[in-house]
Design a protein around this nucleic acid. Structure first.
Lengths: 222, 222
DNA sequence: CGACGGGTTGATTGTCCTCAAAGCCTGTGG
DNA sequence: CCACAGGCTTTGAGGACAATCAACCCGTCG
């Protein structure tokens, strides 16, 4: 069983890591998903709960005509697919080659019923997802394109533990669908931040970004 | 103590209503807020949890320059201010003259620690808030103005138990700040729906809306 | 090589925002 | 009782920001 509290880096076990031993029902296995493959689909029965071991995952909803809203990116250490519900409310896909650990949801719930500490951790995690969604509503409803991209960079800077440089696993279209923009607008905003001297591009594919002036970016984030 | 499960109408107690007697710590009192007054502010210590007895409440976040995003409307029967957290993440204001019941958060948490049923209900409620926020992210990130207003009408139609006619407690600006639009755009969308023959206005202030063609409105909702 | 995916940049369009004016209703005070 | 102010809503005109459409560049891989 993986640590219930969503900690990062992944090798730092949550406070429940040590409980594994005496919860026999917590059988967890590991699984690999190739870049671009679906892990589960919206409205499918929620059979498992997942934790990212390596790689990255996007969770999204689709409108009937294909418009997509990514609700969250799941990075190394993140737990996802925990719906407290019979069915998944998002589709989850591997953004890059990804390894996940998984546990049967019903096992988790069975243990939670007898172990208040685990039950409490489920609440903590759901609450943490709620807080993220609330903040994201503000971003999607009221921030400008530049503010959204700045907020995105700061979020990734915080969550990706890279030294100095943010190595984004996702393409511009994913970022756009996360921020409620188009990929062109994201690209333009990044170019503008580059022109401002707030960041530099490193890799050949422009996905490695060095945040030169975090304060400036933070000021842009309303 | 009010029912923990968020039921409506308010006089239908949740499954925990009967537990009141033997949880002495569940002291709840009632309070009145005049139209427009603040119930609690963002980042204030979360001392109480609230339930709307009559009236309506808006929960919102502000950006530094005054842009506002309303995260939710709380209608009769709704429980709000339950943050599972030390501080409130929204500001809550009475939209109209409003009566609320309130309970000390710490009491709730104390009871939840010993009563798994109550703890489970906290999770259910948090999860329900999360689902709403997730759906709202899709609306804010990817829907057009007309689709947003259609979705809003359907939500209010579902949640307000009025017979046939939706009696909105909030002004156009509140609707706009909920939908990530301006009040003029909301007004224009409603006029367009009226022109389509999808709805009719009843009251003198245009807040009573009869949904004539729910199917048409539902089709607009992507 | 050539196709493809991903990214940037430019030109144009369109949706929604901004600014403005007017109507309606309510409440208040002369 | 009427005058008038203020809040709320609608509607119009113009503008701005992001979307759309399109071209091009670059790296990778068959």
């Amino acid at each position: 069983m993986f640590a219930l509290v969503n900690t990062r880096p992944a090798h730092a076990p949550g406070i429940l890591g040590r409980l594994t031993a005496h919860h026999a029902s917590f059988i967890s296995s590991e699984f690999h998903y190739r870049k671009g493959t679906e892990i589960y689909g919206e409205n499918e029965p929620a059979e498992y709960v997942y934790q990212v071991v390596s790689g990255a995952v996007r969770s999204y909803k689709l409108l009937s005509d294909g418009r997509r809203q990514i609700g969250a990116f799941h990075l190394v250490g993140d737990i996802f697919g925990l719906e407290n519900d019979e069915t998944h409310r998002f589709t989850a896909e591997a953004i890059v080659d990804t390894n996940v650990r998984l546990t049967k949801r019903v096992c988790l719930e069975r243990v939670a019923r007898v172990d208040p500490a685990i039950a409490h951790n489920l609440l903590i995690m759901t609450n943490s997802n709620l807080r993220h969604a609330e903040d994201h509503m503000l971003l999607l409803g009221r921030k400008t394109a530049l503010e959204r991209v700045a907020a995105f960079l700061l979020e990734m800077d915080r969550r990706l533990t890279g030294v100095d440089v943010v190595a984004l696993p996702m393409c511009r279209r994913d970022i756009a669908d996360y921020l409620g923009l188009t990929l062109e607008t994201v690209s333009r905003a990044l170019s503008k931040l580059h022109a401002f001297g707030a960041l530099n591009f490193l890799g050949s594919n422009q996905r490695e970004i060095m945040l030169v002036d975090r304060d400036q970016i933070a000021r842009l984030n309303a």
